[in-house]
Simulated assay, not measured.
Amino acid sequence: MECLNFLRELNIWSVMLRLTAAMAFGGLIGLERGRKRRAAGFRTYMLVCLGAALTMLLSQYESGMLAGAWAETATELGIRTDVSRFGAQVINGIGFLGAGTIIVTGRQEVKGLTTAAGLWASACMGLAIGAGFYECVVLAFLLIFLSIRLLPYLENFVVENARNMNIYVEFESLDDVGEIIGRIKAQDVQIYEVDIDHGREEKLRNPSAVFSIRLNHKQMHTQVLAAISELETVRTIDEI
């Protein structure tokens, strides 16, 4: 514990450790996202975590200087500082990066939410590293890495066995909607929402629709998709 107390102080060794740890932990999380070819990968996560740690170090340095070497000047000028405001600005600023990774595809499917959340969590971890909260950093890294590396398998299992599903279907003409709905209902399922996109003739884009349905039995996903794909008018089909 004496070693940790020494490293919590603002000295050259603690600064080196914190910045190195920020690069390492942020980079390890980014490696997993980069492996999946996400918008933000190894270097992005590393820089976000490093920048957050550096911000927290700067706030501690400024607070220490205003209480020490700059105390007299600060009193004369009436300068006051709030260490917490630096971290608050990091949390607000990371929202711009996160928003840039979120997109809505032509199939009305939202992508990039996990990447954006990972960036935000990585920034928070960087703040903890910069503050010297080492115990929290190790636990946070393990939980974040667990969330983005192992939990997707559990998520996929839950989705595959869920009663609700959304199906994106692209077809030749709007006249085909009735036939598609009839084929879906023939699978003993309930349709509770249909979002139709009429398409654009100038871009040679076929009309499409997103069907939100509820299955009366589990593990019918493949059966429903196969039944719809048998229609000759269907060009593209995908579960989203």
Rank of each mutant, 00 (worst) to 15 (best):
R38M: 10
N166A: 14
L10G: 00
A67V: 05
L19A: 07
R35Q: 10
R214F: 09
G130R: 02
G34A: 10
F141L: 05
F25Q: 00
L7N: 03
G64H: 06
Y153E: 09
Y192Q: 11
N92K: 04
R149G: 04
Q89I: 09
W70L: 14
T236L: 09
V104D: 07
E76R: 15
Q223T: 13
I167S: 04
K185I: 07
I180E: 00
A186H: 10
L66I: 09
N156T: 10
L150S: 09
I228L: 13
G51P: 06
A67Q: 14
I240G: 06
I228Q: 09
T81Y: 13
L154G: 11
L19Y: 02
E230A: 14
T55W: 01
K111G: 07
H221R: 14
M56N: 02
R214K: 15
L4H: 06
G126P: 02
A186G: 13
A67W: 05
T114E: 06
S208K: 04
N156M: 11
L139P: 01
L127F: 01
A226I: 07
N161S: 13
N206Y: 14
G199I: 01
K185F: 04
V194R: 10
T105Y: 06
F141I: 04
A67C: 07
G100N: 08
A121N: 03
L28D: 01
A226Q: 13
